[in-house]
Simulated scan of single mutants.
Amino acid sequence: MRFLITTQAVDLDDPVLAFFHRWIEEFAKHSEKVHVICLKEGRHALPENVTVHSLGKESGRSRLKYLARFFKYAWRLRHDYDAVFVHMNPEYAVLGGPLWRAMHKKIGLWYIHPRSSIRLRIAATFADHIFSASNDSFPFATPKLIPLGHGIDIGFFSPGNFVPSSILHIMHVGRLAPVKNIEVILDAVEELSARGVPVSFDQYGEDLPSDATYAAHIRERARSMQECTFHGKATPTQVSDAYRVHDVHVNATTSGSFDKAVLESMATGTITVASSKTLKSVLPSDLIFEERNSHSLAIVLEHIARMSETERKVLRDNLRKNATKNNLQQLLATIVRELS
């Protein structure tokens, strides 16, 4: 089996997409040959049967250049791939779909986001299969949808030697954006402090230019709080190390979102709290708080703070066990089988 994969970036240093390097490695284990078309190419160390073709964003923006290179690669490599896997960017399926259909190439689309678009609906018409984390993480109903969970590298995201302390160490992983509802977490931390619960909060993730106003507001708010640190851009290694030294990871996105950070923190043995009802299949109900409700979050966090270390360890072990059901190897094997 030979694959063509399209994605935004192949870059071990990308703060958002570095994880996809492991996906490509896993595809290579199941494939004779893998070609990857990416918008931006950075540092990578991929197997010999993988070739990366960049559209050239790293050397300057040019939509015309991107389009010309995309069609050049899709056509020139046509005899060297049997199926196409489109990761998160439906425009690749919109552009390449007619050509791939004409050449009888199977098309798989991976997409996780609650928001629909005309581009996504057009891409869905070309796709043979659509893969997502759950039925709720894809924005519209289609018989092509195959819910697979998230592909978590459970070897990389694994528990360390956690050292308990009297302080409840809380963290959040994700960009500074309104959709992340970080103000809800800050409100809950302030409420816990007011109740006399020793607590700290660490934020890992940067902001996009479009979210600069929100990010500035959140940073200004955090500056007035004790034991609150914003670390900015973080590599996957820095994030996994952070999980290992924190008691709780909070995800405050609303229903329809299935953030992979939730499963990564669970796999690392961090107690994970979330508000998205989409996560009811992986988190116990007492770790889910009401959406955009800081008081509800504070109640959940205080309950964890009052637990004995033995109770927390049992909870961490159970969360790790649940997360391993979403392992990368199993997910990629299913995708390869469906596209064969």
Rank of each mutant, 00 (worst) to 15 (best):
M1G: 01
R2T: 08
L4Y: 00
A9L: 07
V10T: 07
W23D: 11
C38H: 05
G42F: 00
H44K: 11
P47K: 06
T51R: 15
R63T: 04
Y66F: 15
Y66D: 06
F70A: 01
W75C: 03
L77C: 11
H79V: 07
Y81S: 02
A83N: 10
A83M: 08
H87T: 09
G96Y: 08
P98R: 00
R101H: 03
R101P: 02
G108I: 10
G108P: 15
L109V: 12
R119G: 09
R119H: 11
L120S: 04
A127C: 07
A127M: 04
N135V: 14
P143A: 05
L145F: 09
L148N: 12
G149N: 14
I152G: 13
G155I: 11
F157K: 04
F157R: 06
G174D: 12
V179T: 11
V179N: 10
V179F: 04
E191F: 10
A194W: 09
G196H: 05
P198Q: 08
F201T: 11
D207S: 14
P209I: 07
I218Y: 00
Q226I: 10
G232V: 09
Q238M: 12
D247N: 10
H249N: 14
F258V: 04
F258G: 03
V262L: 07
V262C: 06
E264P: 15
A267H: 11
A267K: 09
K280G: 01
P284V: 03
S285F: 10
R306E: 10
M307N: 09
E309I: 08
L319Q: 15
R320N: 12
K321F: 00
A323M: 12
K325I: 05
N327D: 15
L332S: 02
E338K: 15
